[in-house]
Design a protein around this nucleic acid. Structure first.
Length: 798
RNA sequence: GCACCUGUGGCGGAAUUGGUAGACGCACUAGACUUAGGAUCUAGCGGAUAAUUCCAUGGGGGUUCAAGUCCCUUCAGGUGCACCA
């Protein structure tokens, strides 16, 4: 039979036998393996998808054989701008385009023989699914965790559309390359920043890869410092600043407000050079993100004439400036500047000739800001103290005088939840002139996305939904008066913020997930996804889940126990695969040429799973060759139900290695150990059926079709998918005899073969008898002999 | 700029966590079987050397009986964040 026929045959058997459908009422121990659901793009499955699916599939298949009730689901993340753009470009209705693409993707995945539980499949665009996305949004609203506020959005003046931060990466529109500007819009926002500490703290309860934890920690950006009040001279107000270096307060020679600071409006009349200030504000607004955050550019700013602050530690007057290097969105939107000990403040002071007062010994203020530690000077009651002591003492002082306190700041901001787009979940809110924002009653969910003639972005920056008047106009659920629906939709991060929960109970039409299912499945045991989702998606998902936990809707605070990330598959030239580079490999072609098993095997063998790897056709051929060699072994079978004695040790060793490697994502060495076993089988005259079947079972998670077929061909009735995972005997994983190296002064001079139970005295004796060793120790004094059991002997001579 | 990761044959990569560096695969070389081979099999394959032996895990130093692995330093590449006070 041909490879393709064998693969089709077994795929049908698995499908018809419902082998991979997880049971919600099982007595078995559960194991939940999740791989990020794909966005079904028009270009079809990528070999990168095949890598992670093969990896997690191998794990799922082994875990099932080990007796676990494995949940290994798959679905589609189908809302979002890319789907919309694909639809616009190809003149297909988005829902149709999504349907088509899902069909292609699913067919491709099926051809690979992945053991997904298709009975739980759904797309985020299914009304049965987004009904519950909307319902959960309403829970946020109910708890005051969602609010509407004016926020600046990225605006492309050419495409006349709002862009997400991702679409406006680098301050340039992803589609047309125009420079992105800002536009003020009223938006729904989720209070994610209030969960910053929890998101940080919750990492303790996870086993994420270190690099992923680190990415999360950096993104959350916790910073402990102090808030200090500077009196604004001749007013009742104080200018609040955040600083991590309150020990340098004596060195603050000026203040800087962000261009958006509210005092600039409030004290407009007192500012003598208001024209100049307003011109600067205007300039800052027009500047693109790219210009504003360019670190290499010169500092700019304007001194505010007419406003003066008072330093609370010495009551000295401090001038106030406005500059765009201070961000409105972080801290209090204003800083105290200590040019002697901060690089940015130093650059600013140098440029505008502002005095620089050193308050810590060390460095040379003529050359640069000194940011290190040292003894304080010019600092009154802090003189002679180091940084840490000074911070503590200053905090005491500030608290006592009631002019400041210890504060923590986070870089993590609230989640802007509105998109002025058609292809997303409608936000289920209604605006009534009398009642304000009113949630759509839960029993009226889902708010369906209407069928429209035009879904292209509009000139005004409104969602295309705004034009559908008979959809927009609706009675207020509270008072019955005519009101208007929210026309913005949710970001595509919304649907992916709870999808793993839905898999637990995918067809529940009463609740988002049943409580029994939640309790049984608990946390996802293994969650695999790309490194590009290590911050945003993972943070959104954890935040969403923590919120649900606080409402008593889910049983655990954290959703994922373990998060791992796969490396990218690059083109054979080592560059990222792309059409323009012409280095794209289509998995379908590879399946046709070499079969699904060979492709799966190769993608696992290609290298360290966590690292990027370059594609090689020859590598794939090598794996195909390996599978062919496994097949040819069936010609030397002996009908025996025991292991061949001389193979026993290597078989036990391999079982151990493959079991551990598959559980620890060390796929490349799992494959290589199976190649080693195959080599060993080839070297002996005959192998028993038991030897062979063990190889087939171990290889099955990697190459499921051919192994099932061979197992059947040699006469076994029980399918591998119904079998138990082989066990190994630790005692048999070590051979009786081992060859160890003998070194003289750390250099290898010979080898001796010893019995595992042999004591060091006997090994030592053997080592000293070795001819070559003798030559090297001749005429020298033996200082000592080190024997490491089963590993090495080292003779130290003088 | 800061943080993190990675540097091992012609290539992808192993190395039980301090114990025989280069497993396994690819590519390559020679041979066998063949009408044929882009099939299969056998042997070889880091560098130098006739052998013995020496040199080799980006470079330099150190700890140790022993270092790819630990420490210091330096170089190169990658990723993330980027005026976060």
């Amino acid at each position: 039979m041909k490879t393709a026929e064998i693969e089709k045959k077994w795929q049908k058997i698995w499908q018809d036998g419902h082998y991979f459908e997880a049971k919600n009422d099982s007595d078995k121990e559960k194991y939940y393996i999740l791989v990020e659901f794909p966005y079904p793009s028009g270009s079809g499955l990528h070999v990168g998808h095949v890598r992670s699916y093969s990896a997690l599939d191998a794990m799922a298949r082994m875990k099932r054989m080990q007796g676990y009730n494995v949940l290994f689901p798959m679905g589609w993340d189908a809302f979002g701008a890319p789907a919309e753009q694909y639809a616009i470009k190809n003149h297909i209705y988005p829902a149709e385009a999504v349907k088509e693409n899902i069909k292609t993707f699913k067919g491709q995945i099926m051809d690979l023989g992945m053991s997904f539980d298709w009975s739980r499949e759904f797309a985020t665009t299914d009304p049965e699914y987004y009904k519950w996305t909307q319902w959960q949004f309403l829970q946020f609203v109910k708890k005051g965790m969602a609010y509407k506020a004016e926020k600046e959005i990225n605006w492309c003046p050419n495409c006349k559309t709002g862009l997400s931060n991702e679409d406006a990466a680098g301050g340039v529109c992803e589609r047309c390359g125009s420079v992105v500007t800002k536009k003020l819009k009223s938006q729904w926002i989720l209070k994610m920043s209030s969960y910053a500490e929890r998101l940080l703290d919750g990492l303790k309860d996870t086993e994420f890869e270190e690099r992923i934890k680190l990415a999360q920690i950096n993104w959350i950006g916790k910073s402990i410092g102090a808030e200090v009040d500077f009196k604004l001279k001749d007013t009742e107000d104080v200018l609040k600043v955040f600083t991590t270096r309150c020990d340098t307060l004596f060195g603050a020679t000026f203040m800087v407000m962000s261009p958006e600071h509210q005092f600039l409006t409030k004290y407009k009349k007192r500012i003598k050079n208001i024209k100049e200030v307003e011109a600067y504000q205007e300039e800052a607004k027009l500047k693109s993100e790219i210009e504003r955050t360019d670190v290499t550019k010169d500092k700019t700013g304007v001194k505010i004439e007419g406003l003066v602050a008072i330093n609370p530690v010495n009551n000295q007057e401090v001038e106030i400036w406005i500059s765009d290097y201070v961000l409105a969105s972080y801290g209090t939107g204003a800083i105290m500047a200590v040019p002697a000990h901060d690089e940015r403040d130093y650059a600013f002071a140098k440029k505008f000739n502002i005095p620089i007062i050193p308050v810590i010994e060390g460095g040379d203020i003529e050359k640069e800001a000194y940011v290190g530690d040292g003894l304080h000077i010019n600092s009154g009651f802090l003189d002679g103290l180091n940084k840490e002591e000074s911070i503590n003492k200053m905090l005491e002082f500030l608290a006592e005088k009631k002019v400041g306190k210890k504060t923590t700041n986070y870089r993590l901001q609230d989640w802007i939840f509105s998109r002025q787009r058609f292809w997303g979940e409608p936000i289920p809110m209604i605006y009534c002139d009398d009642c304000g924002w009113v949630p759509v009653p839960e029993e009226e969910l889902p708010v369906l996305l209407p069928t429209v003639a035009h879904y292209e972005p509009t000139d005004t920056g409104e969602s295309p939904l705004a034009n559908i008047t008979d959809w927009v106009n609706t009675p207020c659920p509270k008072c019955g008066k005519m009101a208007k629906r929210e026309t913005d939709t949710m970001p595509n991060w919304a649907g992916s913020s709870w999808y793993w929960l839905r898999y637990m109970d995918a067809h529940n039409d009463k609740e988002f997930v049943g409580q029994d299912a939640l309790k049984y499945w608990g946390m996802v045991d293994y969650y695999n996804g790309g490194m590009e989702h290590a911050t945003r998606h993972l943070l959104y998902a954890r935040f969403w889940h923590q919120f649900l936990y606080d409402q008593g809707l889910v049983p655990t605070p954290e959703p994922f126990k373990k998060r791992v990330a796969h490396g990218m598959i690059l083109g054979s030239n080592g560059e990222k695969m792309s059409k323009s580079r012409g280095n794209v490999i289509n998995p379908d072609d590879m399946v046709k040429l070499y079969g699904a098993d060979a492709l799966r095997c190769y993608e696992l063998f290609i290298g360290d799973y966590e690292k990027d790897a370059a594609w090689s056709d020859n590598g794939l051929k090598g794996c195909k060759r390996f599978l062919d060699r496994v097949e040819r072994l069936k010609d030397k079978l002996e009908d025996k139900d025991s292991y061949t004695p001389e193979l026993e040790s290597i078989i036990h060793k391999t079982i151990k290695k493959v079991t551990n490697d598959l559980a620890n994502m060390k796929y490349n060495t799992a494959v290589s150990s199976l190649m080693i076993l195959t080599n060993a089988f080839e070297e002996v005259k005959t192998i028993t059926k038991k030897d062979y079947q063990t190889l087939l079972v171990l290889l099955n998670p990697i190459a499921p079709h051919i192994t099932e077929e061979l197992n059947e061909q040699i006469g076994f009735k029980t399918k591998i998918v119904e079998m138990k995972w082989p066990s190994y005997d630790e005692a048999k994983t070590v051979s009786d005899e081992v060859t160890i190296g003998v070194q003289v002064n750390g250099k290898l001079r010979g080898e001796v073969t010893i019995n595992v139970s042999e004591d060091s005295e006997s090994i030592k004796a053997k080592a000293l008898e070795n001819e070559n060793v003798k030559r090297h120790i001749e005429g020298k004094e033996i200082v000592k002999v080190i024997v490491i059991q089963g590993k090495i002997a080292n003779i130290v001579v003088k």
